[in-house]
């Protein structure tokens, strides 16, 4: 603050422009340090110095001075006004194409969104179709494999033929072929349909008298009465099996026979 006191005496003369160069330089260096109080005092001193203007006797300048000034000012105001209208339409024009662009973008977005959705639908349909085809293909392959196995069982000389006559019914009879490697194939013609909601189930009757019949595959004859049943992996070997039997069982099969066998054939 002592520092400031030393400069305080110079502030009025500084505002008046009366300081000699050394003192002015010293005060300006002090003000450059950011002394807020002194800067404010200088501004106040400047205001005070400005009041001295009133001590000059007022004088009226010539009308020619005003005439010259007003002429210049009017001409400049006119060229300013002429320059202005060019700016205005440009200002108004910008929003118009901006709006147009915005609208075009919205339309574009709608179209794109719709197309994408359409494409998605088509893709989903194609995937669905593909899955169906694959499923069908898989089914066909499986059927083909089964048919192949059936043919092999039929042709293989090592297959054992087992006749399964109908129990008490004339004509209709099944014929089984058992191949140790390929499985059991049961076939027959003109086989009557089981009762509604019933199937024909194959059983393996073991040689051991204490053992229970072992459940195997089940199926129906087709509309022509043709019956084909392929068991790729029979539950027991030919050596342990005394006979093959087929019973009529409720749909879904049973763990043990519930009816008297319709077709029975002894394994020799």
């Amino acid at each position: 603050m002592n520092n400031c006191d030393q400069f305080r005496e110079l502030l009025e003369a500084y505002a008046l422009g009366a300081l000699d160069p050394e003192e002015r330089a010293a005060l300006e260096a002090h003000l450059a340090t950011g002394c807020h109080d002194c800067a404010r005092s200088v501004e106040e001193a400047r205001w005070l110095v400005c009041q001295l203007a009133y001590t000059a006797p007022e004088a009226t300048p010539s009308d020619m001075l005003k005439g010259r000034l007003m002429q210049t000012v009017r001409a400049e105001a006119q060229s300013h006004a002429e320059a202005k209208p060019q700016a205005l339409p440009a200002k108004r024009y910008v929003p118009v194409w901006m709006w147009g662009l915005a609208a075009a973008m919205i339309v574009f977005m709608i179209v794109v969104t719709r197309n994408v959705r359409h494409l998605q639908d088509e893709t989903r349909e194609a995937e669905h179709l593909n899955a169906e085809l694959m499923e069908g293909n898989h089914k066909l392959e499986k059927e083909l494999a089964e048919t192949k196995r059936e043919a092999m069982i039929m042709m293989d000389p090592k297959s054992v033929k087992i006749m399964m006559p109908a129990n008490g019914k004339q004509g209709a009879q099944l014929e089984a072929k058992w191949n140790a490697q390929l499985g059991v194939l049961v076939m027959g013609d003109k086989i009557p349909m089981p009762a509604p909601h019933h199937v024909l189930q194959l059983w393996l009757i073991p040689k051991d008298p204490k053992a229970k019949p072992m459940p195997s595959m089940m199926t129906w004859p087709d509309a022509d009465g043709k019956f084909i049943l392929l068991v790729s992996n029979p539950p027991d070997s030919m050596g342990n099996t005394k006979a093959l039997a087929i019973t009529e069982e409720p749909e879904g099969g049973s763990p043990g026979p519930t009816t008297t066998p319709i077709y029975v054939g002894g394994v020799s």
């Binding site: 203007a53 009133y54 000059a56 006797p57 007022e58 004088a59 009226t60 300048p61 001075l65």
Partner: peptide, 12 residues
């Protein structure tokens, strides 16, 4: 303000 300004300038 022209009278004040002109008076000041003329005084100088």
């Amino acid at each position: 303000h022209s009278r004040l300004v002109y008076g000041l300038v003329l005084r100088i």
